[in-house]
Design a protein around this nucleic acid. Sequence first.
DNA 1: CCTCTCATGTAAGACGTTACATGATTCA
DNA 2: TGAATCATGTAACGTCTTACATGAGAGG
Lengths: 192, 192
Amino acid sequence: MSIKYAILGLLHYRDMYGYEIKRHIEQNAGFMWAINYGQIYPNLKQLKNEGFVTLKEVNEAGKKGPSRKLYSLTQRGREGFSQWLSDDPERFMLMRDPFFLRFMFFGFGDRSRALELIDDQIRHYEEQIERRRERMARWQKFDIYVRLLAELGVDFNQRILDWLKHARKEISCAEEDSTTASAARREEWKGR
Amino acid sequence: MSIKYAILGLLHYRDMYGYEIKRHIEQNAGFMWAINYGQIYPNLKQLKNEGFVTLKEVNEAGKKGPSRKLYSLTQRGREGFSQWLSDDPERFMLMRDPFFLRFMFFGFGDRSRALELIDDQIRHYEEQIERRRERMARWQKFDIYVRLLAELGVDFNQRILDWLKHARKEISCAEEDSTTASAARREEWKGR
DNA sequence: CCTCTCATGTAAGACGTTACATGATTCA
DNA sequence: TGAATCATGTAACGTCTTACATGAGAGG
């Protein structure tokens, strides 16, 4: 399981509390990690029981917002993390996406509905790219690894968007000719 | 849950048995779906109980290989699938990848080990691309949607490989200068 | 006063993975 | 005879998601 290690990783920057960890992961690794409290809090508890983190401080409510539990890395946590970091990673990427799965079977459904869903997807990725551009600045403060990942994230978004537009064109023109013209369009997309 | 719908989708092509369904998903949707028997067989059972598929035929052992259970779509299955296909998809893509997660924290570990892991990854994606090229021909027999997805899969692989090589260069040259030269290399990569 | 954001947590259930059990056929 | 592949399945375990419960502080 790697959420634990994601938490340990973040605690290298500074001591944090659960709510903050979630926000961090969403903002900085949102393109590869969906996270929720049902994962954060039980994992923090377990990490504490295993001696990887300690509860450093509890800000009681009434001072500045509600109570917070600040967690801190222990030596053991640092060592465990370090070990994990240099292990061989287990599995490789799966771009598991409910839209792509549907897409694979669009041929068994209505073409106009397929085009609608593609348009929704295009809109979504356009917004996504906007939001990501706004956040680009914040990543410049991080180290080279985080910046490189951010670049990859942006590039992926743009690629998917390009592909969606290419696919849309390809599909809506599917009648006219199914070999020559479409092959030309495929080349056009590849050439970017 | 969408594995059920992936199964219903495949049964649109022809009647199939569990083992065959797994093989199909691995070969044709392997870049987005990891599948195992622990999912296939229980799901087939459930689909049968819900009336989406029927057991059409049982090839007993001893004739041509071990016994097979051929499943077939019912009218209800066709309708349910059709409904799902035109629904709005729920979530969006996460490229959840244990390597990328590690990568994000390479700054807290050993740089030479990081470079080793990157090299392993480069090797893996190079092999992956080779294998995918060999399979490219088989996708030409499918409809436009499957072909478009296959194109995306290939493109993604290539993109990740390019990025890994770019990252490797960037990291191994990280001492010399941390602003001018790296900015130039970043532009170089973006410009492809 | 009411709603939003901040903050912590739990419980139930859905989903996915791994390991195991079984047995036939094919090919070396 | 032994190993590989084909074929079906289950049980245990781990992970993830969803929904719920609670309550303080800030701002309109």
